[in-house]
């Protein structure tokens, strides 16, 4: 048990180091973009007709703390986020980033996690069936569908569904809310409205993720099913579902859990493009906006920080789960019994 706590703490420490390292890279990249926030703001004012002097720029820099050394500013950025939950201001939009993001990140995360959960709920049983069925044609069909899922890009699926919806229902189903709820405060009706629309991005994201997870589960099951211990169990008279679940399925669960963090990563990466097409007002779309259009480094940095933190956290959880589940790893990290 002592060892297990030690393992968890070490693993958590490692996660934090990873997160800090990624943040450092993100922050450095933000620095590399020419022009500071002060210059940009004043340049903006300039276009509005005000006359800007060199002193104005210096003053603005001091006001924003930009005269401080790089490492100091990095430390402050991180500590503000971690200690105060404050992501600072966006210097393009001149708004507090927390306000800008309010709810949107949670919304994005929800869409991604729901897509992920659905894809595994489908992929695990279907992958097992595909790997173990006596009927070669069933396996071939499932394999074909999953290849399709991998080959068809998310945005194409999204466009097809939009086209279909427009033709048959006269509504593109874009956006996360209908127009009448878009700017309303949350209410039960708004939640219902959200749910009636959220299935589309969830489906589009999950479609691809399911196909990948299906391939993973299928390959792991085939691998496990060929092992001697499965034949040895069959030789002891164990058969049917009991054999399947207790032997190959149970033993391929570890690597399946391992792949979850990886898949979440993939879904996150796909989200912005899907969001762009479906005109979703969520964090992924904001990230594209910030990175590609307005060059809003503070906003982009904040979103990347949140995404990275989520992935690092999920990976941490799956590693601990794995250590609890697999006796070989468990013994390594817990010692003795």
């Amino acid at each position: 048990m002592i060892n297990f706590i030690q393992f968890t703490l070490t693993r958590a420490g490692l996660s934090i180091v990873t997160l800090l390292l990624v943040c450092f890279i993100v922050f450095s990249l933000m620095e590399l973009v020419p022009g500071t926030c002060a210059e940009r703001y004043l340049a903006f004012k300039n276009t509005q007709g005000s006359q800007i002097t060199y002193e104005d720029i210096e003053k603005e820099k001091i006001r924003l703390g930009l005269d401080k050394p790089f490492l100091y500013r990095y430390g402050k950025w991180v500590s503000d986020i971690v200690l105060k939950g404050d992501f600072g201001d966006s210097c393009i939009l001149r708004m507090n980033i927390n306000e800008l993001l309010s709810g949107r990140f949670v919304l994005s995360l929800t869409i991604c996690l729901v897509a992920l959960i659905f894809s595994y709920l489908i992929a695990i049983p279907v992958g097992i069936i595909s790997a173990t069925t006596k009927y070669a044609s069933l396996d071939t069909t499932l394999k074909f569908i999953s290849y399709l899922g991998i080959a068809l890009p998310n945005f194409l699926v999204a466009l097809c569904i939009m086209l279909f919806m427009t033709v048959f229902y006269g509504d593109t189903m874009t956006g996360l809310f209908s127009q009448e709820y878009e700017n309303q405060p949350w209410s039960s009706a708004k939640v219902m409205d959200f749910l009636s629309r959220a299935w589309l991005p969830i489906f589009v994201l999950g479609w691809n993720a399911t196909a990948f997870a299906l391939q993973t589960v299928r390959a792991l099951m085939l691998d496990e099913n060929d092992k001697l211990y499965v034949m040895a169990a069959r030789a002891r008279g164990i058969s049917g579902m009991k054999l399947l679940w207790r032997y190959p399925a149970k033993h391929s669960l570890g690597p399946v859990i391992n792949s979850i963090g990886f898949d979440l990563n993939r879904i996150f990466s796909a989200l912005p493009i899907v969001a762009l097409i479906l005109i979703l007002t969520e964090a992924g779309a904001l990230l594209i906006e910030a990175l590609a259009r307005s060059n809003d480094q503070q906003l982009a940095g904040a979103i990347i920080f949140l995404l990275t933190a989520t992935i690092v956290f999920v990976n941490f959880v799956t590693d601990v789960l794995l250590a609890i589940m697999d006796p070989r790893i468990r013994k390594g990290v817990m010692g003795g019994n």
Binding site: K227, L228, Y229, V230, M231, A232, A233, R234, A235, R236, G237, I238, S239, R246, Y247, K250, H251, G254, M325, D326, P327, R328
Partner: peptide
């Protein structure tokens, strides 16, 4: 399979399921 006939395989490591206790595999049978 396990009733009138039992089998022992060449690889003792590989013939036990790695994540099930030896005792539980014996009891199950």
């Amino acid at each position: 399979r396990g009733g009138k006939v039992s089998m022992i395989f060449q690889e003792p490591m590989a013939s036990f399921a790695p994540a099930i206790k030896i005792g539980n595999q014996m009891i199950e049978q």
